[in-house]
């Protein structure tokens, strides 16, 4: 069984990569976590973002969660705010789309227009 003792070792390791990871004004990823988002699978989407960012050792990025974004029928909704402040709102996000958003948008800087809320027909 894991214990919190191991957390001390992990702390040392984290300190070494800290300078790289925590830079002001980096990319922000915000996952909508209202009742609608949760019921639609937002928690798994958040989890996938955290796992991928950890596995790929992406730095200069913050993942947080926010409340209902008001477009419940299009949940899970994820807002990506680039370092320059540009916002992209992705809708109907699932675990499969997460690696794609990370690879294309966050790593390569190319917005995925086909997944944007603004591109969805009502």
């Amino acid at each position: 069984m894991k214990s919190l003792e191991d957390l001390k070792k992990l702390r040392e390791k984290s300190i070494q990569s800290m300078n790289m990871r925590y830079v002001e004004n980096g990319v922000r990823v915000q996952v909508g976590m209202g009742t609608c988002g949760i019921a639609a699978g937002a928690r798994a989407v958040l989890n996938k973002f955290l796992e991928e960012i950890n596995a790929r050792e992406i730095t200069n990025i913050t993942v947080t969660q926010v409340g209902c974004m008001g477009e419940c029928a299009f949940e899970p909704i994820v807002e990506v705010v680039d370092a320059n402040g540009d916002s992209s709102i992705y809708c109907l996000v699932d675990e499969r789309k997460v690696p794609e958003i990370i690879e294309e948008h966050i790593v390569n800087g190319v917005r995925l227009d086909r997944y944007l809320l603004s591109g969805v027909k009502r």
Partner: peptide, 16 residues
Amino acid sequence: ILGDVPLTDVGILGYL
């Protein structure tokens, strides 16, 4: 235990 290392570090979150 973590001291100045934030709880929200992705590595720490994965561990927890």
